[in-house]
Computed example of a mutant assay.
Amino acid sequence: MHVPVRRGQLKLPLQRDVPAGAAEFVCSPSNVEAMTVLAHWPDGGEQVLALHGPAGSGKSHLAAIWAERVGAIALHGAEAGLADPLELEGRPVLLDRAQDADDETLFHLINLAQSGGGALLLAARPAPRAWDTALPDLRSRLDVVRAISLQEPDDTVLAAILRARFAARSITPGDELIDYLVRRIDRSAAAVESVVDRLDAEHRPVTRALARQVLESDDSTGELFD
């Protein structure tokens, strides 16, 4: 099936900057396979690769490290349809939230990556095999994309996320506070953001005792973290 290339798309101010502190990504058993593969990809390997895993597993962060290393053009979800294919040809491309891109865009990006000189990294929660598509040719391409999974944050990663979120608010938490929260909150970036918001909003020294009060208060109102 041939899908015509669209013309007149916007230029690429839509590419997004890699996040600050990308080099501080924490390696752990939950992400070591993906880190190892991306450290050298696409040198001598397949031209399309997918990272998938739950929210907070570090897909976007790890993909951004790769994009920074290879100088990739970074696109995001449905916005990828605005990119001019001529500007992407022969270039490494990162597509974050790839499952949100339309079928035609995905088809073009995969074909461009395989046409020579390019590479396409797809980051999404579900693996490509699980994405809905109405294009049979796209379905066959997605089904053979190599997919590497990241697991939900383990203790090491969750502690690092907590420290980073506290640091963004100029809070330096003690080890006992981090250990306490790691054992009690849900393993997701959303849960981290929520508990840090709550603790910061108290406008008091952020200690284990305060964390216990906040979590017990949430438990009593049905706002459970775990």
Rank of each mutant, 00 (worst) to 15 (best):
160 A>R: 09
187 R>D: 10
210 L>T: 11
59 K>P: 03
209 A>Q: 12
53 G>F: 03
133 T>M: 04
194 S>E: 13
152 E>N: 01
57 S>N: 01
195 V>W: 04
5 V>S: 10
216 E>N: 10
123 A>V: 10
155 D>E: 10
159 A>G: 08
50 A>I: 07
111 N>L: 08
187 R>N: 08
139 R>S: 07
119 A>F: 13
191 A>I: 04
226 D>G: 08
121 L>R: 15
88 L>W: 15
224 L>R: 13
78 A>N: 03
73 I>C: 07
3 V>L: 15
168 A>M: 15
176 E>Q: 12
52 H>L: 00
143 D>K: 14
20 A>D: 11
32 V>R: 15
204 R>V: 00
186 D>T: 09
68 E>F: 03
70 V>P: 07
17 D>W: 05
170 S>A: 11
49 L>G: 01
102 D>R: 13
31 N>E: 02
41 W>N: 01
101 A>P: 04
127 A>L: 14
21 G>S: 03
52 H>R: 11
208 R>I: 04
127 A>Q: 15
69 R>D: 09
140 S>H: 06
36 T>C: 02
82 L>R: 14
213 Q>H: 12
185 I>F: 08
89 E>M: 02
155 D>L: 09
84 D>A: 08
107 F>M: 04
94 L>A: 07
191 A>L: 06
10 L>T: 02
80 A>I: 02
121 L>K: 03
27 C>Q: 10
111 N>K: 13
156 T>K: 12
16 R>H: 00
163 R>Q: 10
8 G>D: 06
168 A>L: 13
39 A>G: 13
25 F>V: 06
90 G>R: 13
94 L>N: 12
2 H>E: 01
185 I>T: 06
83 A>G: 02
89 E>T: 00
194 S>F: 13
113 A>H: 10
157 V>K: 00
171 I>F: 04
141 R>L: 07
213 Q>C: 00
143 D>L: 04
111 N>M: 12
44 G>N: 03
191 A>F: 11
132 D>M: 10
3 V>P: 05
114 Q>G: 12
89 E>I: 02
225 F>Q: 06
58 G>K: 04
190 A>I: 07
65 I>G: 07
99 Q>E: 15
34 A>I: 00
110 I>T: 10
33 E>S: 05
88 L>K: 02
68 E>L: 04
26 V>D: 02
32 V>K: 09
38 L>H: 00
59 K>H: 08
166 F>D: 05
187 R>M: 03
203 H>S: 09
225 F>M: 12
41 W>H: 05
117 G>E: 15
189 A>I: 10
36 T>G: 01
109 L>A: 08
71 G>I: 02
146 R>D: 06
157 V>W: 13
5 V>E: 14
135 L>K: 15
82 L>P: 04
214 V>H: 05
115 S>L: 12
223 E>I: 07
70 V>W: 15
107 F>P: 02
33 E>N: 06
54 P>I: 03
56 G>Q: 11
178 I>M: 05
68 E>V: 03
219 D>C: 12
168 A>W: 05
23 A>Y: 04
144 V>K: 13
200 D>R: 07
85 P>M: 09
149 S>I: 06
81 G>D: 07
54 P>W: 11
23 A>Q: 13
205 P>D: 12
